[in-house]
């Protein structure tokens, strides 16, 4: 069964990789926006949003991504909503990403010394003004490295969506492996594809971390 040539395999895998990249970007951008909402709920002074956000985070961090995807994909058809695999995948990964990013960012906000809150409060700034002008600009700086670092987890997380039938890099790979009987070659290439997507991100994250530790502030 070797009438599928290597160039065909690579071309198909590149197509799958494009879907992986697209799903990763979607999940990262939408998850980032939702993560901001989670962050603000998590650090609100009112206990109700704080508890809700905490429960949200614990559900998504405390269960496997695969189960979250199953529940969204199969659960939606149970209630009569037929949603396509790509939508279930995007939705699942977005929720997953928002929970993690919200929690990472909360850590960054809480890493800002209490004195910054007290000094800005003493200047008669409101909570929102303190966040906007004093706390978030500093938290953002320390958040960049772990956020980029987490994006690697999002890229790898997209592999799980192959199980609900979303044809990204892993799913493309398993279809090709079945057709060519060359799983080692195909999955080797798949792994290489993930590495090519993730390595620049983790290298960038490390570089940012060094840069921030090297020079304080501004």
């Amino acid at each position: 069964m070797s009438d599928i040539e290597l160039s065909d395999i690579v071309r198909n895998l590149l197509g799958g990789a494009a879907w992986t990249l697209g799903l990763s970007l979607t999940a990262f951008v939408l998850g980032g926006l939702a993560g901001l909402a989670v962050l603000f709920a998590r650090i609100a002074r009112n206990p109700l949003p704080r508890r809700l956000a905490q429960a949200y985070i614990e559900v998504f961090q405390g269960t496997p991504l695969l189960m979250q995807l199953f529940i969204i994909f199969f659960g939606s058809s149970l209630i009569g909503l037929e949603i396509p695999p790509w939508l279930a995948a995007a939705l699942g990964l977005t929720l997953f990403t928002s929970a993690y990013l919200g929690e990472i960012w909360r850590g960054c906000v809480e890493a800002i010394p209490k004195g910054q809150w007290e000094a800005s409060a003493s200047l008669a700034m409101s909570h929102v003004e303190q966040m906007r002008h004093v706390i978030l600009p500093q938290a953002l700086r320390i958040a960049i490295a772990p956020t980029v670092g987490f994006s690697v987890q999002v890229v790898k997380g997209t592999a799980v969506t192959s199980i609900i039938g979303f044809v990204e890099l892993t799913k493309t790979g398993s279809m090709l492996a079945n057709a060519t009987f060359q799983p080692f070659l195909v999955f080797g290439l798949v792994a290489l594809g993930y590495f090519a997507l993730c390595y620049p991100l983790s290298a960038y994250s490390r570089m940012l971390e060094r840069k921030i530790h090297g020079s304080r502030a501004h």
Binding site: Q116, E118, A119, S120, S122, L123, E129, Q138, A217
Partner: peptide
């Protein structure tokens, strides 16, 4: 009521001038 702290608590991401200006502008 203004306050000055033991640990200064300047805003490290802003220059000295911006530190002094911030609250006068927004508050």
């Amino acid at each position: 009521v203004g306050m000055i702290f033991q640990q200064f608590n300047l805003f490290p991401h802003l220059t000295a001038g911006q530190n002094v200006m911030l609250a006068t502008r927004i508050v």
